[in-house]
């Protein structure tokens, strides 16, 4: 299992569009991917779940991935968040 902790940097946080981008990206991987914020864990392939996290700017998320492509999944998702979802 791979895991990483990331900080949400874009101003509006994970609103609809970023949530959609996370899910699209996560769905490309075979691994089971979870996002955890303050103890609440959701499936990164579920847009309802990701939106329900309501992760605003500055909030910290733990990403865990388990499966054949877990390393790549973590790297890709971390990159997306770091790039602020290409919004700013």
């Amino acid at each position: 299992m791979e895991e990483a902790t990331i900080t949400i940097l874009n101003k509006l946080g994970i609103h609809v569009r970023p949530a959609a981008l996370i899910v699209q990206l996560a769905s490309k991987f075979e691994s089971e991917i979870k996002l955890n914020k303050d103890g609440v864990e959701v499936d990164a392939k579920s847009i309802m779940g990701v939106m329900m996290l309501a992760a605003g700017m500055g909030s910290k998320l733990k990403i865990t991935a388990e499966g054949r492509d877990e390393k790549e999944a973590i790297a890709a998702l971390g990159g997306l968040v770091e790039a602020k979802f290409n919004e700013e």
Partner: peptide, 16 residues
């Protein structure tokens, strides 16, 4: 377009 795209994804959300 992006908004409707996200709406579509909600209806394809496997977990939900």
């Amino acid at each position: 377009e992006g908004i409707f795209g996200a709406h579509l994804m909600m209806l394809e959300d496997p977990v939900f």
